[in-house]
């Protein structure tokens, strides 16, 4: 039986203020797939992930996003998250005064509520958290600290993937999760992501660099330029890009126009 897509983006246009950033994105992702979106700075990569997650800084002016058969643009950010969309932030936000543990429990319970499940049992939650923390090689003391507050860049990124591991989303969006990581952190973060690959989950990796894709090997690679996907291919596309750089892309963008 043919699987139905998790995510379908059709001719999506979006703007921030008066500036049009996305100019007709088409992308279909099926369960079990890992897609990578690459592109130069300013091509609209991060905007795409923010629009999918529901950030109100961006306004979708045309086109649609269908998530598991539902019109995503009609939903609030929290509804999207409750239905299984997870955005690993490029710049995780510091929230003084709210403990990581409290935050994670509130997030997990919001998702469980949507599924009609009871609130997580304290012991069960603690065991789950400990297990996922050890995968991410994180110090347990981070749990009682305020969300991302005073965390190093690497700790923040690990914390994102740790949250993802606990919340087990259907669709994970990783927005430049590799940026600013050292080699060790990159390995840990990548293996954390790989551990979540599963036949009923999809992952969209957004990155500027090919390097991350050595660790998280994608099924498909798309190249974004000037708000459009100008080229799609297999994992070999990432390698080709590494060699030629993004320099030839303007040409693609011209053709796509």
């Amino acid at each position: 039986m043919a699987k139905s897509p998790i995510l379908e983006i059709k001719d999506l246009h979006a703007k921030a203020g008066d500036k049009e950033i996305l100019r007709g994105i088409n992308l279909t992702i099926y369960p079990g797939e890992v897609h990578a979106i690459m592109g130069p700075n300013g091509s609209g990569k991060s905007t795409l992930s923010q629009v999918i997650a529901g950030r109100d800084l961006y306004e979708a002016t045309k086109g649609e996003i269908i998530y598991e058969g539902e019109d995503l643009l009609e939903l609030d950010p929290e509804e999207r998250a409750q239905k299984g969309i997870f955005l690993a932030f490029q710049y995780p936000v510091e929230i003084p005064g709210v403990s990581n543990l409290y935050f994670l429990k509130a997030a997990l319970n919001a998702i469980r509520k949507q599924k009609g499940e009871p609130e997580v049992d304290a012991m069960e939650f603690f065991n789950l958290v400990r297990q996922k923390m050890s995968i991410m090689e994180m110090d347990e003391s981070l749990l009682n600290r305020a969300v991302n507050t005073g965390f190093s860049g690497g700790e923040k990124k690990r914390n994102e993937i740790f949250q993802m591991a606990v919340l087990e989303p259907r669709l994970a969006l990783l927005d430049e999760t590799d940026s600013g990581l050292d080699i060790d952190a990159l390995k840990v973060v990548s293996s954390g992501v790989n551990a979540l690959r599963s036949p009923d989950r999809a992952i969209l990796v957004i990155t500027h660099y090919q390097r991350l894709l050595n660790h998280i090997v994608p099924d498909f690679v798309h190249v974004l330029a000037e708000g459009r996907i100008v080229k799609s291919g297999g994992k070999e596309l990432a390698l080709a890009l590494e060699e030629s750089g993004y320099a030839g892309l303007e040409e693609f963008a011209e053709i796509a126009r």
Binding site: D56, E78, A81, V93
Partner: peptide
């Protein structure tokens, strides 16, 4: 902090 607000919402917590 609107960034913090969105971050919480993006984890499923109601506005």
């Amino acid at each position: 902090d609107q960034e913090a607000l969105f971050y919480l919402q993006a984890r499923g917590i109601n506005k």
